[in-house]
Amino acid sequence: MTMATDDAPPTTSKLNEERASAIAAVTLPKGDDLIGRAVTINRPRDELFAYWRDFSNLPSFMDNVERIDILSATTSHWVVKAPAGRTVEWDAKITEEKAGELIAWTSGEGSDVPNSGRIEFRDAGARGTIVTATIAYDPPAGMVGKVIAKLFQREPAMQARRDLRRFKQLMETGEVATAAWTQKQRDEEKA
């Protein structure tokens, strides 16, 4: 393997092979059931934790989540968009929580898409807070499973990255950036 001779990010390398593998590492899903992503947000840790802890807030930046109903202090019901106008649903339960630091959840029995994940918040000094999301999911077999797998495997790593970016935009600027110039266009982008 050819070694880089400068300290530029490998995704910008002049060596074609090195650049291609670095870009693949950033953009391609690593396996098909576990993804992890991080983003640095220029806001205090407690504020970010509090917004995320109220799960009913999540659809404001997760474009594929239609709605989340709060069932109790630790349980919620998720309705997520699937191809062809369908939805998939599950109940989620918080399995671990440390105020201001982390929230972990897992889906209950009988979920359309069994999944679990954790979101962690760490201080980043003058830069704010590093937010790390780790999500594991298990698409079921069969025809329905194929449709659901298509939704989740469409590029799950990319979906998580975009959700975190939108979370950052919302927390830092109060809104989610869009290049649409009519409401109709924006609705189509989110569909």
Partner: peptide, 19 residues
């Protein structure tokens, strides 16, 4: 600026320039 570019379109710059 981290936020002026919509989330979906940031992927292209990230792939081409690393950021």
């Amino acid at each position: 600026c981290d936020n002026g570019n919509p989330a979906d379109n940031q992927d292209i710059g990230q792939e081409m320039y690393g950021q």
